[in-house]
């Protein structure tokens, strides 16, 4: 599903964020990506979602070289990927309902269908009764769950999460990671970047370690 072949990424004026990264994440597989902060975890995820383009090497998504994807096709690639950010990236002036509905609105789904599926997704993350609130009225953990609902609402083939447990307590973190495992069991390809090594170790999934811009399989 996702294949990195000797990928390097350099930001202008800085050293290499990734120097030589190769891996294959099969369709329906799950993996954790770990490493200390600044090791390039976020960069790796951004390369998959085409938020950045690689400096060297190839990133293949579903067999296609994303570097060769024209800007016109980028949105359609992104619709196949759900991304969860540490800082949530919610729209502050829109209600929880509208935030979660955004991918469906973009895909042109009918309003009745949107209503049904947003309710279902909010129910899944336990926020159904908060659909009319604005993000700033929610706790950090609740905002994170809104972000998760938005990431899974369009049933993406791939789910990427960047430090999703960043500011959650241990119990909520464990619940969240288990949620990702369950999603993976439904057929979603999942890649989670996290520095919470202890938690990851308990989940019995492949762990990849990023160190000095290179990937080692743990």
């Amino acid at each position: 599903m996702i294949q990195f072949d000797r990928v390097a990424k350099q930001y202008p004026g800085t050293g290499l964020a990734l120097s030589d990264v190769s891996f294959t994440l099969e369709r329906g597989q799950m993996a954790f990506l770990t490493g200390h902060s600044g090791a390039g975890k976020s960069t790796l995820l951004k390369l998959i979602a085409l938020l950045e383009r690689p400096t060297r090497g190839q990133v293949l998504f579903d067999g296609r070289n994303v570097a060769k994807l024209s800007t016109r096709h980028v949105p359609y690639l992104r619709r196949q990927i759900g991304v969860i950010f540490q800082d949530h990236r919610l729209l502050s002036d829109q209600r929880v309902f509208d935030n979660v509905a955004l991918p469906l609105v973009i895909a042109g789904v009918s309003y009745t269908e949107i209503k049904r599926r947003v309710r279902a997704a909010l129910d899944k993350v336990g926020l159904l009764e908060k659909e009319r609130l604005y993000p700033h009225m929610l706790s950090g953990g609740e905002q994170q769950r809104v972000g998760i609902a938005r990431a899974i609402i369009a049933k993406p083939a791939v789910l990427l999460a960047d430090e999703p447990t960043g500011n959650l307590d241990p119990e909520l973190s464990a619940q969240l990671m288990q949620f990702f495992v369950n999603l993976n069991e439904l057929g979603v390809t999942v890649l989670v970047a996290s520095h919470d090594v202890d938690l990851i170790a308990r989940l019995n999934q492949p762990v990849w370690v990023l160190k000095e811009g290179q990937l080692t399989h743990g």
Partner: peptide, 21 residues
């Protein structure tokens, strides 16, 4: 957080939405 239902779906079904509308 509620757990998603555990019926295994074919991976082709996932991501179908991109063209649904």
């Amino acid at each position: 957080m509620a757990r998603p239902r555990k019926n295994k779906r074919s991976s082709q079904q996932v991501g179908r939405l991109a063209v649904a509308g």
